[in-house]
Structures are given as C-alpha cells and as structure tokens.
C-alpha cells in the first residue's frame, strides 16, 4: 500500500525469520550506521570544527539508522528470550 510496506516487502518479511533478516539486511544497515557515524566524527576534525552543513546532512541518516539499530538489537534479544 505504501512505499515502505510493499507486497515484496510483506512477502520477504513473512518468508524469512527475523534472525535471517537481521543477519543480512540488519547487519548491512548497522555497518552503514557505523560508517556514517565515523564520517560524522571525522568531518569536523578534518575541517577544524567548521562543518555544520556536513554534520546536518549526515544526521539525516544517522538518527534513523540508530533507531533501526535499537529495534534490531531489541528484537534479537527478544528472539532469544522467547
């Protein structure tokens, strides 16, 4: 119905276990998060602290990815508890 939950997404979610999804796409997203956070840390250093635009641009990705990271970790933990 929406761009986030299409038929293909629904079928992928129902076909695979969350463990499978989190070890594939979940891990890819977390690696991207680490990469973007590292960039966010490096940019002000290389530019001697004068990089507000770059930091704002990277924040567009950092915060959503951090939320996804939290969801992935909690879901995996819940999976183990169940």
């Amino acid at each position: 119905m929406t761009t986030t939950v299409t038929g293909l997404v629904s079928s992928s979610l129902t076909q695979h276990s969350y463990d499978f999804l989190s070890t594939h796409i979940g891990l890819a997203v977390i690696i991207l998060l680490a990469f973007v956070m590292l960039l966010r840390e490096l940019v002000p250093i290389v530019r001697n602290g004068d990089a507000p635009l770059q930091v704002r641009g990277l924040d567009v990705a950092v915060l959503p990815l951090l939320i996804v990271f939290a969801i992935v970790v909690l879901a995996r933990l819940a999976d183990l508890l169940v």
Binding site: V5, S12, L13, I25, V29, V68
Partner: peptide, 8 residues
C-alpha cells in the same frame, strides 16, 4: 529500513 526495522 523497511526490511530491517520490522519484526515480522
């Protein structure tokens, strides 16, 4: 995000 953040 739509694949990683959703617990089926």
């Amino acid at each position: 995000i739509s694949l990683a953040a959703v617990e089926p």
